[in-house]
Nucleic acid binder design. Structure first.
Lengths: 134, 134
DNA sequence: TTTAGTGTCATAGGACTGTATGACAGTGGC
DNA sequence: GCCACTGTCATACAGTCCTATGACACTAAA
């Protein structure tokens, strides 16, 4: 299974799962339309309550990452955000600012920082089969 | 006062303060060695319990952003992180990945994303008096 | 219709978080 | 020493969060 829970991390289980699904979707490990593991078997495999998985999936649905078809299961959606363009832009800028502020505190200079960003972009593109992020 | 609390945001007051101090330090609004507002007056001004401010300052001290001299006050430290270099690198990469994953979900392409990053770097450098992030 | 699979909802309990209060300890000027 | 200022700690309490349980509803195949 592609998902791994770290019970010692202190981070809530359902959030770990949310991040991993988003990450897998962004890197192309999971493709649009693909079904996600169904709740009960995944819960059993990860040794976690089924409602914990359900909560993660609900959160992902709210974020527009997946859609659930009643009685059938959960499926990765085509990329589109439920938010309006200005809100999306604001969210992304906040995320970027966090990274920039952290770079400052960690004493990483501009060139090194940009290099790291490009490296990660490359990594994700490579993972998703030489496809550009779009 | 440079700090503003949004009580409707849902974000804990002490975390709002932590972010604002980090942001102010990164952008040069606050300079190393400068004293931060002392706890009680700031608490009064922001209409917040004094221990809420104290908690924010404690957190900032743990992050290596400020240091407190008993009986005197809290002062912005020279930039240095309490973490080792590999840990710092890992933290920063996680932060960058979050932004990259979000860009993917928000359907922002590579060039646009890099442009946004540069824009924010420029912004912070400009704020801190044309000084490079280091 | 029955059965086995899917996700959903209401509810509950234990742990944790955020904030508040009061008492305490260090510093420096009077 | 006293006083006014600094930050700190122990404690308390309400609210929230995370996880867990049981009952429910939808879908598809036998």
């Amino acid at each position: 299974m592609i998902f791994k829970i770290d019970f010692k991390s202190g981070k809530p289980v359902y959030l770990q799962l949310v991040d991993q699904v988003r990450y897998a979707a962004a890197s192309g490990v999971l493709q649009a339309g693909e079904p996600l593991p169904s709740i009960r078997p995944l819960a059993e495999e990860l040794r976690v309550n089924r409602n914990t998985i359900a909560k993660a999936y609900t959160e992902l649905e709210n974020q527009g990452v997946l859609e659930t078809r009643p009685g059938k299961g959960c499926f990765l959606k085509e990329n589109n955000s439920p938010f309006t363009k200005p809100i999306r832009q604001k969210l992304l800028l906040a995320e970027i600012d966090e990274a920039v502020v952290m770079a400052h505190h960690l004493q990483v200079d501009r060139e090194k920082f940009l290099a790291l960003v490009q490296e990660r972009l490359d990594y994700f593109e490579q993972q998703s089969g030489a496809k550009k992020i779009n």
